[in-house]
Design a binder for these strands. Structure first.
Lengths: 97, 97
DNA sequence: AAATAAAATATGTTATAGCATATAGAAAGT
DNA sequence: ACTTTCTATATGCTATAACATATTTTATTT
């Protein structure tokens, strides 16, 4: 069970059209190291993980378990069917048209 | 600038009423190690970070930068004032009262 | 204020990420 | 098919997390 969160980094890199070499250059790491990371062969340090995520415009966040379904539905744009409504917007300001 | 995300782990531990020793026991680590981590003196590995977060009922997620304001507002329960509305709920199902 | 519990600091060993460099293999482009 | 680009694998060295254990300092409780 390779860490799922690492797969997201690879997917994000491809989406942005970066090669392993290009991403490595931004991080000051060799392409070979990026390969190892994405393949789940090494257990990288937190600072490396954070740096890599941010270079891919991803912000690592800690979400309370009880809120993860709501957050996930936001991220995937799903038409969610949560038993408890995930969230309700404020209605205290004028909305855009 | 000690990593902010580590502070969240410490806060979560305290909220749950765990001591460093108790958390360490769950992870199979000595109390001293938890102390080092929380003090930002060591740069822990991703697997340790993930394990610790999950023991504290926090799920690490990668949020696209453009969505972080919306997610943050969910997490903090703020009455947000985002220039672009953060999110709009579906209105295709019956709501609870 | 004494006792107890929790957290921080210290020292030493072992395992492994980080790093460099090279090369082999796969995919994409001509 | 050949060339170029991208990705995976391999070897070796260095820095440091992981781990054990002990002690000190700081909070908390009675």
């Amino acid at each position: 069970m390779m860490e799922d969160i690492i797969k997201k980094l690879r997917a994000a890199r491809k989406t942005k059209g970066f090669t392993q070499g290009a991403l490595g250059a931004k991080m000051g790491l060799p392409q070979s190291h990026i390969s190892q990371i994405e393949a789940g062969k090494i257990d990288i340090r937190l600072s490396s993980f954070l740096e890599m995520a941010r270079l891919l415009d991803l912000e690592p966040m800690l979400v309370p378990r009880s809120l993860t379904p709501a957050v996930r539905s936001m991220l995937s744009g799903d038409k969610e069917k949560t038993s408890q409504p995930a969230w309700q917007p404020d209605n205290d300001t004028e909305e855009l048209s």
